[in-house]
Simulated assay, not measured.
Amino acid sequence: MFNGQKPRQPEAALQLPETKVAADHRGATMNGSPEVAAAPRPKAARRNADAMHVILRAMCMAASLTAFSFMVTAKQHSVLVIYGFQFPVHSKWSFSNSFEYLVGVSGAVAIHSFLQLLICVLRLLSKSSVIPSRNYAWLMFAGDQVLAYALMSAGSAASGVTNLNRTGIRHTVLPNFCKPLHSFCDHVTVSIAFTFFSCILLATSVVLDVIWLAKY
Rank of each mutant, 00 (worst) to 15 (best):
V207N: 07
L174G: 05
L125P: 03
K179T: 13
V146W: 00
Q5K: 14
N3Q: 02
Q9A: 09
V103T: 11
K20T: 12
M71N: 09
T29R: 15
G160Q: 07
S198I: 01
M140P: 00
K6H: 00
G4K: 06
S106W: 03
T162A: 08
Q9L: 09
L124K: 15
S205L: 14
N31T: 06
M1R: 08
Q86I: 00
L14H: 06
S69K: 13
G84T: 07
G84V: 11
R134I: 15
S153K: 08
K43M: 14
A193V: 08
A63W: 02
E35D: 11
L56D: 11
G104L: 14
P132L: 03
V121C: 14
S153F: 06
S183K: 11
E35H: 13
I131W: 12
A108R: 14
A63E: 14
S64T: 11
H90K: 12
L164G: 05
L202Q: 02
D144T: 03
R134E: 15
S129H: 13
Y149S: 08
L125C: 14
C199S: 08
Q116R: 07
C120T: 08
A39T: 13
L213H: 07
L202G: 04
S153T: 11
F184L: 04
V161N: 02
P180N: 04
V206I: 07
N165L: 15
I82G: 03
M59K: 11
V207I: 15
S128Y: 00
V79W: 09
L164S: 08
V79R: 10
W93I: 10
A137F: 01
N176G: 00
E100M: 11
E11L: 10
S64L: 05
A28H: 03
Q5P: 04
A150C: 14
D50Y: 02
P42F: 00
S91M: 11
E35R: 12
R41I: 09
K92Y: 12
I169G: 00
A67D: 05
H25P: 00
V79L: 10
T29V: 12
V130E: 05
A12C: 00
L14W: 02
R170I: 05
M61I: 01
A39G: 01
L164T: 10
M59I: 02
T167G: 10
A157P: 03
P180V: 04
M61F: 09
Q76D: 08
N176E: 08
A137N: 06
A148G: 01
V210K: 13
G107E: 01
K179L: 13
A38L: 12
M71P: 04
W93L: 05
G155C: 02
L201T: 05
H187G: 09
L208F: 10
A45S: 04
